[in-house]
């Protein structure tokens, strides 16, 4: 049995519902992509999302990215084989950066996303963490992202630990710093509580914004969010729920 969970600054995880049911809801409301991260994967040293991914991939028809505990080419394959379009790699890559080359060379750069948990340093800059902000990697975020891009990842998912789950806005300096050094798409995450936060993230250079808590708590819904973003000039895919029947 799996649960959809969400924390604050990657701590104090709370159950938020059924992961497959939420996927169906977000798909029906026009999510552009679904992102699943197994936050306890490192504890068990394996990703436990295969069953959920298999189910969700047969019921929803948007890209699915899956992360957590991907520490080998075989682990990546196991998820891609059940319907994931991309794997997001954090710990596995910080321990063995060559893993990024391996997955990219085998499945294409479009299949591998570097996932970074960024924690702001008191004297400026950010350090890359793993295991939900518990462990230090000793890597400085901007340099690490640059290295991963050279190793062939197709996208970067950058999560601000400081802003995560707080609904007070994103770490815009982080988004700008990372977006400036790579020429691959950057997906920014952590801190979205309102439409303005999404817009600010896009304005700072992010290609896409990942939202968790604001949707899981139903404080925001994707249909309204999309409409508001379009009205404020952000280029989003027009989508109406009435598109669903029939197909």
């Amino acid at each position: 049995m799996s649960h959809l969970i969400k924390g604050v600054q990657m701590e104090g995880w709370r159950k938020m519902g059924d992961p497959a049911e939420r996927a169906r809801k977000y798909y029906a409301e026009g999510a552009d992509e679904l992102l699943y991260i197994d936050v306890v994967a490192s504890l068990y040293e394996r990703n436990n999302l295969a069953d959920i991914v298999r189910q969700v991939a047969s019921e929803t028809f948007v890209p699915i990215t899956v992360g957590g505990g991907i520490n080998s080419l075989e682990a990546a394959k196991a998820l891609l084989d059940v319907g994931a379009d991309k794997v997001a790699v954090n710990t596995g890559a910080t321990k063995c950066p060559e893993l990024l080359n391996e997955i990219s060379d085998t499945y294409g750069s479009q299949a591998v996303v570097l996932s970074v948990e960024a924690k702001r340093l008191p004297n400026g800059g950010w350090t890359a963490m793993t295991d939900n902000g518990r462990n230090h990697t000793g890597r400085e975020v901007v340099g690490w992202v640059e290295e991963a891009a050279r190793r062939g990842v197709g996208e970067v998912l950058i999560t601000s630990i400081d802003q995560d789950g707080c609904s007070k806005g994103m770490d815009l300096e982080l988004i700008a710093a990372v977006s400036a050094v790579v020429d691959i798409p950057v997906i920014a995450s952590g801190g979205v509580g309102a439409m303005e936060h999404v817009r600010a993230g896009i304005d700072c250079g992010a290609s896409a914004i990942a939202i968790a808590k604001a949707l899981h708590t139903d404080e925001q819904n994707l249909l309204d969010l999309r409409k508001m973003l379009a009205q404020s000039g952000v280029p989003v895919r027009p989508y109406a729920e009435k598109e669903m029947p029939g197909v």
Binding site: Y27, F61, V62, E243
Partner: peptide, 15 residues
């Protein structure tokens, strides 16, 4: 593009 990953519009195209 990927019709299999393009939501209702993609499914419609396949249909």
């Amino acid at each position: 593009f990927h019709p299999e990953r393009s939501g209702p519009a993609g499914l419609q195209m396949l249909k």
